[in-house]
C-alpha cells in the first residue's frame, strides 16, 4: 500500500524534496497520479522546455507559443501569464495557452467536495473499541441464586445491564473507512479544482523554480506578499527533485509546500491559498489528465464504434 517516492540514483546539484515526502506516502499513495512513477518512459523529457519557443538562456525572449499536446476541438484555449521568480515584483515573461478541458472545466463544487471527502476518509481508521460481555474477564459465575433472594435474576456480572459489564453494540474497531473514488471523479475533481483556482486568480504559472534568485525564506515570503499570493502557497513542479533555492526557502516556511505533479490533489490545492505551477508542470498535468480523458472515452460504451 505504501509507495515510496523515487530516489535519485546519481548525485545531483539539486536537493531532494523532503518536506512533502511524508505527505506523499500517506495522502497521495492511492492517487491515480502515483502510477506515473512507474511509467517514466511516457513522461515528457524533464529538464527541457523544447515545446516552448523561448530558450532558457535568453531572459528577454517572451514565451508566447505553446503547442497543446491534445488541441481542443471545440473550445478556444484560455490564456495565462508566465511569471518569473527572479525579483519580488515579478516580470511577465510570456503568455501561454491553457487547455480549456482542464483549466476551464465547469467548477463542480460537489465533485471537489467528493474528492476531498474521499481523501479524508480513505486513510481514516476508527480505533474506538469496546469489549463485549464475552471478552470481559470473569462473569462466568451466577452472581446470586435464581430464586428466593428477592433480587432480580441475573446470570453474569458482565451483562450489559451491569455497571462494569460488557458493551452491547459498542464500537468494534479498528474500522477502516477506505474506499476508492472512481477514476472519472478523481480526474474531474482535479480539473474542477484547477479551473476554480484559475478562475479565482489563485493559480499562477512560472517559467521554472530555478529562477528563484535567493535561498532565503524571507525573500520567498516577501515575494508571495508582494504578489498577493496569500499566506500559503503550493509550488508544483513536474519532478520531485526541486531546485536548490526554492527547497531551502520553503524549508523554513511551514505554509509553503513543494509538490511534484504526481502528488497533485484537490485537498492540497484547496488547503493552500495559491497554487504555483511551472510550465513543465502544466505540460504534464495536461498530458496526464487528457490521457485519462481519452482512456475513459475509449472505455465508455457510449463512444464505441
Amino acid at each position: 500500500m505504501i509507495i515510496r517516492p523515487v530516489l535519485l540514483k546519481e548525485p545531483s546539484p539539486k536537493v531532494m524534496m523532503h518536506k512533502t515526502g511524508t505527505l506523499l506516502r500517506t495522502v497521495f499513495s492511492r492517487s491515480w497520479l502515483a502510477e506515473s512513477i512507474r511509467k517514466p518512459a511516457l513522461l515528457p523529457c524533464a529538464g527541457t522546455i523544447s515545446r516552448y519557443t523561448a530558450s532558457s538562456s535568453s531572459n528577454s525572449a517572451l514565451i508566447t507559443d505553446r503547442q497543446l499536446l491534445y488541441p481542443p476541438k471545440y473550445n478556444t484555449p484560455r490564456e495565462a501569464w508566465v511569471e518569473t521568480l527572479g525579483t519580488l515584483e515579478g516580470r511577465k515573461v510570456g503568455l501561454i495557452p491553457l487547455h480549456p478541458d482542464i483549466f476551464a472545466e465547469f467548477p463542480r463544487i460537489d465533485v471537489i467536495h467528493e474528492n476531498v471527502k474521499w481523501q479524508k476518509l480513505y486513510q481514516h481508521v476508527d480505533y474506538a473499541h469496546q469489549r463485549t460481555r464475552a471478552e470481559m474477564p470473569g462473569g462466568g459465575r451466577k452472581p446470586w441464586p435464581q430464586k428466593k433472594t428477592g433480587r432480580a435474576r441475573h446470570g453474569s456480572i458482565r451483562s450489559p445491564l451491569f455497571k462494569g459489564g460488557g458493551a452491547a453494540k459498542g464500537p468494534r474497531g479498528p474500522k477502516s473507512f477506505f474506499y476508492m473514488l472512481d477514476l472519472q471523479n478523481r480526474a474531474k475533481g482535479l480539473k474542477c479544482t484547477l479551473s476554480a483556482k484559475f478562475a479565482q486568480d489563485d493559480l499562477h504559472i512560472v517559467d521554472s523554480f530555478e529562477s528563484l534568485s535567493s535561498p532565503e525564506s524571507q525573500f520567498l515570503e516577501a515575494l508571495a506578499a508582494k504578489r498577493n499570493w496569500g499566506l500559503s502557497v503550493l509550488f508544483v513542479d513536474d519532478t520531485d527533485f526541486m531546485a536548490k533555492n526554492i527547497a531551502l526557502a520553503c524549508r523554513g516556511l511551514p505554509s509553503f509546500t513543494l509538490m511534484p505533479v504526481y502528488g497533485l490533489n484537490c485537498f492540497s490545492m484547496l488547503k493552500h491559498e495559491t497554487v504555483v505551477l511551472t510550465t513543465r508542470a502544466v505540460d504534464k498535468i495536461e498530458e496526464r489528465l487528457k490521457r485519462v480523458d481519452n482512456l475513459l472515452r475509449q472505455n465508455d460504451p457510449r463512444h464505441a464504434r
Binding site: Y74, N75, T76, P100, A104, E105, F106, P107, I109, D110, I112, H113, E114, V116, K117, T193, S195, A196, K197, A199, Q200, D201, D202, F267, L270, K271, E273
Partner: peptide
C-alpha cells in the same frame, strides 16, 4: 456551444470568496 455555461460559472466564481476546505459543500 457547451462553453457558454462554463464561462458564466467561472465568471461568477471570480466574484465569490475563494473556494477552500471550509466552504465546500456536497450535493
Amino acid at each position: 456551444g457547451p462553453g457558454r455555461s462554463v464561462d458564466y460559472a467561472l465568471t461568477l466564481l471570480r466574484r465569490l470568496p475563494r473556494i477552500t476546505l471550509g466552504n465546500l459543500k456536497g450535493n
